[in-house]
Structures are given as C-alpha cells and as structure tokens.
C-alpha cells in the first residue's frame, strides 16, 4: 500500500496546502494523508453517510414517534444504564487490575496480562452462550446464586454482567501505558515527605491516571451500549424489561423498517458520541489543570 499512497497523492494534489497546513521539512505528507482520507472516507464515512441518510424517508414526526415509543425508550434506557453501570464498575476494576499487572510481580503475570484482551477477541456469540450457560439456573454460578434469590440470566442484571466482560479490556489497556510512564520517583518523593499509601494514591497517582481512566470509561461505555451478540443470549429480551437497544434495531429490520432501524441506530450512535466528546473535553480540562 505504501507504494500506492504516493500515486494517490499525486492524483489528489492538494493545492491549498499552504493555507491550512504548517510547512514541514518532512516529506510524504500528501501521499500518507491522501491514503488516510480515501480509506477513512470509504470505510468509515461512506457507510455512516448511508446510515445518516436513511431515517429521513419517514416524516420527522413519525421519526420522533418511533424513537419515543415506550418500548424503544425502555430498551435504550436499559442499554445505556447497564453500559453506564458496567463502565463505572469496570473503571474501578480495570484500575486495580492495571495497577496489579504493572506494579507487582507474581507467577503467571504475563498470561493474566494477555487474558485481559480475551473478551475483546472472543466472538460475542460464544461469550453470550458461555455466559448463559454459566449464569443459567443450572450453571456453575447460576446454581450458586439461585438459593440466595439472585437471578442473573434472563434479567436486566444479565445485561450488566455481560457488559462487565465486554468493557474491561478498554479500561485496563487505557490505564496501563500511563501507569508505565508514571514516574515512580514522584510516588517515592511523596512517601518520603510522609504521605501514606492512600494519600500518595489519591494525591499523586489518581490525578495522573484520570485522563486515561476517562478514556477507558468512555470506550467501555460506548462499546457496551451497542453490544448485541454477548447480551442477547443472557438478557431475556422481554420488551420493556430486559430488551436492549440493538435488539429493537434488529426487530425493526425484521419488519423491513430500514428507516426506523437506522433512526434508532443513529440515536444510539449520537448518545455514545456525545459521551465520547464530553469525556474528551473533560480530559483536555484535566490535562490542562494537571500540567505543571
């Protein structure tokens, strides 16, 4: 491809270059940039444009009505509330796990480190089937919880549990590099100055990690809200109770209502995007405040 890039660059000769780009002594901008734009355009922008264009074949009133239906609203609420709750728990769990993996030596650390990415790589349907087996009334964990009166599989709680696995790698992987770069000298200095472990953590480590935690949180949240495969097997899918947003999309498609499906999809994407942008903004603020 790199051989291809310069030729694309010459085709798409960018003449207004000086106006919007700072000059640089480095070569190869045009080729790389043109390839980036063409690829991102074809792979990301084109299909999204199709999604954005689709809902408008309904009248705006129908569109709003379709989204504001109680069943749709309940499903969207479940997806986003479960994703939020799971992302919060994952932020805490991910922090502890990243910390342990980066700061302590223990047998099997490398393997455990590798396993963190597993939910990301495992086919969602496999994860879903495994979770339903595990938390079902006769599963390993389900049968332990049943006497306590706790039902996980086929309830909204099941959605939350499935999203715990889905979101965890995002937080761990966001935090790890920052933790790696964090100067231990700073922590040691704090401790030399008489700060105890908790104080060091709260005053020195947490502020440094918070932008990464925010990134991990928002990615886990966005991914969780859209998750379908691993949730559908364990959710129960009861309209208004345990039905998730993506299932409403599938249901609309089943009725050949492409516009309605795209409308729900677009709504979900917009909410996720808003959260991502908000956390990005918060991150920038945090970074500014944290800068010495």
């Amino acid at each position: 491809m790199v051989a291809l890039a310069p030729s694309l660059g010459t085709i798409l000769d960018v003449r207004r270059r000086a106006a919007w780009r700072e000059p640089s002594a480095l070569p190869g901008f045009r080729g790389a940039f043109a390839f980036t734009l063409v690829y991102a355009g074809l792979i990301i922008l084109l299909p999204l444009a199709a999604l954005v264009a689709r809902p408008w074949e309904h009248s705006p009133a129908d569109l709003v009505h379709g989204i504001l239906q109680p069943r749709t609203l309940a499903a969207l609420r479940l997806s986003f509330v479960a994703a939020l709750a799971a992302a919060v728990v994952n932020t805490a769990a991910g922090l502890v796990i990243a910390w342990v993996l980066n700061r302590y030596d223990f047998p099997g650390r490398r393997v455990v480190d590798a396993l963190v990415d597993l939910p990301f790589a495992l086919p969602t349907a496999v994860a879903g089937i495994a979770l339903a087996t595990l938390y079902g009334p006769n599963g390993w964990i389900g049968s332990l919880l049943a006497p306590l009166g706790v039902k996980v599989a086929f309830t909204p709680l099941g959605v939350f549990v499935a999203l715990l696995a889905v979101g965890l790698p995002f937080v761990v992987r966001a935090v790890q590099p920052v933790l790696e770069d964090l100067d231990t000298a700073l922590e040691e200095a704090a401790q030399t100055l008489g700060a105890n472990t908790l104080q060091t953590f709260a005053r020195v480590i947490l502020p440094a990690l918070s932008p990464a935690l925010l990134t991990g949180f928002s990615l886990a949240f966005a991914r969780g809200a859209g998750e379908y495969g691993s949730v559908i097997f364990i959710a129960g899918n009861m309209p208004g109770v345990s039905e998730i947003g993506p299932l409403v999309i599938v249901t609309r498609l089943e009725a050949y209502d492409y516009a309605g499906a795209a409308a729900v999809g677009l709504t979900m994407l917009a909410i996720s995007l808003a959260v991502l942008i908000a956390t990005n903004w918060a991150q920038v603020r945090l970074a500014r405040r944290g800068a010495p």
Binding site: I44, L219, I249, L269
Partner: peptide
C-alpha cells in the same frame, strides 16, 4: 475531526456496522 472519525467505529454497534454496508 480526523481523529474523532478514526475513533468513531469503536462506538458503533456491530449490528449497525453490518447494516450500513447493506444500505450502501
């Protein structure tokens, strides 16, 4: 904007990631 665009697919539901290509 370009950075946001690159991040965007991470927040798209897989159901949608398939559907959009059908729409195209």
């Amino acid at each position: 904007l370009l950075l946001a665009l690159i991040d965007l697919p991470l927040s798209i539901s897989p159901v949608i990631s398939g559907l959009v290509w059908v729409l195209v």
